[in-house]
Design a protein around this nucleic acid. Structure first.
Lengths: 250, 250
DNA sequence: TGAGAAAGACTCAGTCTGAGAATAACTTGG
DNA sequence: CCAAGTTATTCTCAGACTGAGTCTTTCTCA
């Protein structure tokens, strides 16, 4: 039974109902100390007028290429843009249950992105309807995008523990305080400045000093801070663990 | 430009080339103290005669259902089988680059499974060509399955650090020594028995005592061991980290 | 010029870790 | 039945790491 259908399918894929494949992107960035996500307003049925994650159909390209192309289109950045190249993109998960799109069976391969501060999407361009929104304000997205976003946030929070990807939210040079602000925004809780500082510098390859400092102190005072750039580590060892969440463990 | 194509695609999916969606499964189990993976021998072109991960086309069902159905078919276990229900299955990653299957564009949603000891797939059934193979002996799989398997193994190793899923490789009751054997097999390196024992019992919700013990000592001697069952934790806190791999971090 | 903020270095007690060892309960081969 | 070898489980101990708090110094702003 199964053997036959597999056999047939190998030669006649149309024996199965058509499936569309899209990529949807959860791109995160930090603005004004708060975590934001790029959303678009849907112009067409279904979910017309509702906010949704940016995305689109996959063409003759790899999934990763499709994700980066969509990102470029929705942010309005030219594909060659340097800022675009610095966005970290990784595959998140695939959502493909029947019925998630009322039109037909759609498999959506979701990508997760970490972006440094980017300009507002160009009004008037293809990305006219795209905008950065604070993640805390986001709800009632189209399709199953609330779940996709939640999965992306959880992945992002975990990634900050074990990888140096927090630096992907920042420019090429940054201070430890700025890096701490990233962690605070993503995890949603304050961190002990002294301990964070000690920990970051003690993890081999997390950051390396540029030798320079900021040209002036902070907005509200304080000495100039030393500047660092991302190091060559791909994993943090030891990890920077989130403040204890004893309870959530069950 | 993009706006138009998205618009069209919404109403005419056939405007895009056809895509087939399959699930492929990396099911792991432990036999004779070594990590094994379930593989099938391909009966048809392409890659005829080569070993491959079990998998098949997705029907009118969720991706998770497709994965569990394939697992049942390839292991030859009846869908109602209790052992089958105890297999942990989770989505691993989607592989969909053009050209990975010479016939047409195929998106493969890979699943990762942890199975307790299962019988050999029934010779003569649909699963005739399926067999458990030691992962260390596996190479030159069909398609991009070498990569899928490698990704699955890495995920499995990481999962054992942060989740109690090591218990999914065991029966309903097990000893700490058996659990340590799982870790040793998956990580491929020996662990300090005393420290492992202390650590497992100190993580809240990892295991809970059944009150019983094994009915006899080990094969080669030693006292009877206490029996445990899986606890209610979904995350291990603190985690059981792999022995230091300072170097691999860069 | 004084108050307040932040960077960065330290301190300290409690916790966790790896390595090793001790004890006791079993196994098997002889 | 006995000796040798294994394994479960518990302990010990020194070194490393952690969270919380302090101190000094440098800046910004009013």
């Amino acid at each position: 039974m199964r053997a036959e259908s597999t056999f047939l399918a190998g030669y006649d894929p149309t024996a199965f109902p058509p499936v569309a494949v899209t990529v949807d992107i959860v791109v995160l960035t930090i603005r004004d100390g708060a975590l934001h996500v790029l959303l678009v307003e849907r112009a067409e049925h279904p979910y017309r007028g509702r906010l949704a994650l940016p995305g689109g159909f996959v063409r003759d390209e790899t999934l990763a290429e499709a994700a980066r192309r969509e990102l470029a289109e929705e942010t309005g950045l030219r594909p060659g843009e340097a800022a675009l190249a610095r966005v970290h993109l990784e595959q998140l998960r695939t959502y493909g249950d029947p019925g998630r799109d009322p039109r037909m069976r759609v498999m959506s391969v979701a990508y997760l992105g970490f972006a440094p501060s980017l300009p507002d999407p160009l009004a008037g361009g293809d990305a006219a309807s795209a905008a950065w929104r604070p993640v805390d304000d986001v709800r009632d997205l189209a399709f199953d995008h609330d779940i996709v976003l939640a999965d992306g946030l959880e992945r992002a929070r975990a990634k900050l523990e074990y990888t140096p990807l927090g630096t992907a939210f920042l420019g090429p040079e940054f201070t430890i305080g700025e890096l701490r602000a990233v962690y605070t925004a993503v995890w949603g809780e304050p961190l002990h400045p002294g301990n964070f500082h000690r920990k970051v510098l003690s993890v081999p390859g997390f950051v390396e000093s540029t030798g320079g400092t900021t040209s002036r102190g902070g907005e509200r005072g304080g000495p100039r801070a030393r500047l660092y750039r991302a190091g060559d580590a791909t994993l943090l060892h030891p990890a920077l663990l989130r403040p204890t969440r004893e309870e959530q463990v069950r």
